[in-house]
């Protein structure tokens, strides 16, 4: 079990490209674009070489050392351009990693995605690919071929899912989902802003994945652990009980843990397993007979 502090360290290491994670997937929605998180990657990584593969914008970002407008290029042509810009065998690049940003993977056909991602990967490149989850999906002509979102989340070393930090308390998740489906995004609710929620799924080498939730402020470059709603509610309960009487009615974490671990009586009786078996447990005052009458004489 990792502590909250460790998770922030992990996030910062991932943003700074210090983890061995060659393909980082960023999932965004119409309510919160991945633009701010990509800015954070550039800020934290401090890498000298940033290649921006653009399908969506014509404005070259100031941090991009190379800007490739890809909308009229085939996926093979893009791979060749990237390898020409960042030669895989460059010896000086071994210590520092180059950042390759793809502003949207939605523009690559799903059948070409695996070839595209593996074609771009070299030991010196960290690939940050944005995928928009609200773009309508198309069934693949190949039977049972995975949808691009499923395929990308399967191969990604870490998944960054950005969600809006809704400032308007009257908008709940369901309202927001309905609004997005009707392309009628709520206004003044803090959507597409510089402060957002981030759900990070980090995959270890063993294959075990860990999920963390953060609030990221890209204006100040600060990261906090997201306080879940039920945690806040629990704190509220304690606040309610405080100063109510002279008795201490609250339970601290240790007491709560101990309380949860108490095994209540008769729980065994409620498991309607195979009944009728005589279970004999040897106790210290019992007379133990060496000879077993049922033992096989041979």
């Amino acid at each position: 079990m990792s502590t909250p502090q460790n998770s922030i360290v992990l996030l910062n290491r991932l943003l700074a490209l210090k983890e061995s994670a060659p393909f980082l997937l960023v999932l965004d929605t119409l309510a919160q674009s991945a633009y701010s998180l990509v800015q954070e990657f550039v800020h934290k990584s401090q890498t000298k070489e940033v290649v921006f593969l653009s399908f969506e914008t014509v404005n070259r970002p100031i941090y991009a050392t190379q800007f490739v407008q890809c909308d009229s290029l085939s996926s093979q042509a893009i791979i060749e351009r990237v390898h020409a810009l960042l030669p895989p065998s460059a010896p000086s690049a071994a210590s520092t990693k180059s950042l390759v940003i793809i502003d949207s993977l939605n523009y690559i056909a799903s059948e070409e995605l695996s070839g595209f991602i593996s074609g771009l990967m070299t030991p010196t490149i960290v690939l940050v690919g944005v995928f928009h989850s609200n773009v309508p999906r198309l069934e693949s002509p190949i039977t049972n071929y995975p949808q691009p979102a499923e395929f990308l989340t399967y191969i990604a070393s870490a998944i960054f899912e950005v969600q809006p930090l809704v400032t308007d308390s009257s908008i709940d998740g369901e309202t927001l989902e309905y609004a997005v489906e009707n392309l009628r995004l709520p206004i003044k609710a803090g959507l597409n802003g510089a402060v957002f929620k981030l759900v990070l799924v980090s995959r270890r080498k063993s294959g075990r994945s860990l999920t963390y939730k953060f609030v990221v402020n890209t204006a100040t470059h600060e990261v906090e652990i997201l306080q879940e709603q039920d945690e806040v509610a629990a704190n509220d309960d304690e606040a309610l009980l405080k100063d109510l009487t002279t008795f201490n009615l609250t339970t601290n974490k240790k007491q709560q843990l101990a309380k949860d671990q108490v095994e209540l009586p008769f729980l065994e009786a409620q498991n309607f397993g195979p009944g009728g078996a005589i279970v004999y447990e040897f106790e210290k005052d019992d007379d133990y007979d060496e000879e077993d009458p049922y033992e096989d004489p041979f």
Binding site: L30, S33, Y35, S36, Q39, E56, T57, N59, P61, I62, R184, L185, I187, L191, N192, G193, A194
Partner: peptide, 15 residues
């Protein structure tokens, strides 16, 4: 008439 921020409105703000 609704005035809404687009997906890249932050790009405009920064530049």
């Amino acid at each position: 008439l609704r005035i809404v921020r687009g997906g890249l409105s932050e790009e405009m703000r920064l530049v």
